[in-house]
């Protein structure tokens, strides 16, 4: 069956790229959630992953490298009724956009952030990303990466992020369900998704991800922050699933003055009387 979010065009991705799998997963999740197309906005930065919205039939704001999160929050500030999904690469999100990542978690807008985590810079041809494993050699890191990779999940949980999960393109069904839960969740949702870069990452292949991950079982309580943090520190194999949920956080747009009363009317539908300006001016008498 055709997916209504499908947009058929020539893609810039390599044959076999994990982006194709994730695209399918995202489209099915959206269709199953029956989201109204007009009120859905995708936001992305720059990179191969960040091109994802280009291949969907959706509203999108395809901004600057590393800068997907600020406009996403700006969109929620202007219209809290829009469903906002951010899709970008690990370099874009955790490297160039690292500061925004930290503060967007604190700000907690109701958005879903899907990170295509291929552990490498794809578009710029194979340099190390913040999630590249130690030891991997690249044309720049010629002796191998010596820096400790970022652990996005542990970082997010340490910031008490509202929803923290990891998927993998190798686990289509599971990842689709995670993304659906993330979109339904009220607040900032991070879904870091393992996927292969078939051209520039010869270490973390489809097969490697399959062999080095496992799905978290029912016994994990995502409302237990300590347990979630321990899970996030696990490696070889890496856990997949929902690590952490905290529903009790104030949501950015709901805290903003225009919506504080519970009125969610978008800004463009509001008018301000001349009376108010007169009043502000005469207070200066």
């Amino acid at each position: 069956m055709d997916n209504i979010f499908d947009y058929k065009t020539d893609t810039a991705w390599c044959p076999g790229c994990g982006n194709f799998g994730l695209r399918k997963i995202v489209m099915s999740a959206l269709a199953e959630l029956e989201i109204k197309k007009e009120s859905l906005v995708f936001v992305s930065g720059i990179g191969q992953a960040a091109k994802a919205p280009q291949y969907l039939d959706v509203n999108y704001f395809n901004g600057l490298h590393g800068r997907s999160l600020p406009p996403a929050a700006g969109i929620k500030a202007a219209n809290p009724n829009l469903t906002v999904v951010v899709e970008s690469g690990d370099g874009d999100m955790y490297g160039e956009g690292g500061n925004h990542f930290i503060h967007a978690i604190r700000r907690n807008p109701d958005i879903t952030v899907i990170v295509h985590d291929n552990m490498v810079y794809g578009l710029t041809k194979g340099q190390a990303s913040p999630t590249t494993r130690k030891g991997m050699k690249t044309p720049i890191q010629v002796n191998g990466v010596f820096e400790e990779p970022i652990n996005p999940l542990a970082l997010a949980i340490s910031l008490d992020a509202s929803f923290v999960a990891r998927g993998s393109v190798g686990e289509m069904e599971k990842t689709k369900e995670i993304i659906k839960a993330a979109i339904k969740h009220r607040g900032f949702s991070l879904v870091d998704v393992f996927q292969a870069c078939v051209t520039f990452n010869k270490l973390n292949t489809h097969k490697w991800f399959k062999e080095n991950t496992y799905v978290i079982d029912e016994s994990h309580n995502p409302r237990d922050r300590q347990a979630a943090f321990s899970k996030a520190l696990e490696s070889s194999p890496w856990p997949l699933g929902v690590f952490y949920i905290n529903e009790n956080k104030p949501v950015f747009e709901e805290e903003l003055a225009p919506y504080a009363s519970g009125d969610r009317k978008p800004l463009y539908m509001r008018a301000r009387g001349e009376g108010l300006i007169k009043e502000l001016l005469s207070a200066k008498k």
Partner: peptide, 28 residues
Amino acid sequence: SKAGIAVEQVEDEIGVINMALGAWYAGG
């Protein structure tokens, strides 16, 4: 509060301008 303005102190000026562009995109 009086005028219904969405005001936010952003993490840096790069975030500031990009947030503003997001807001304009969505009608603010």
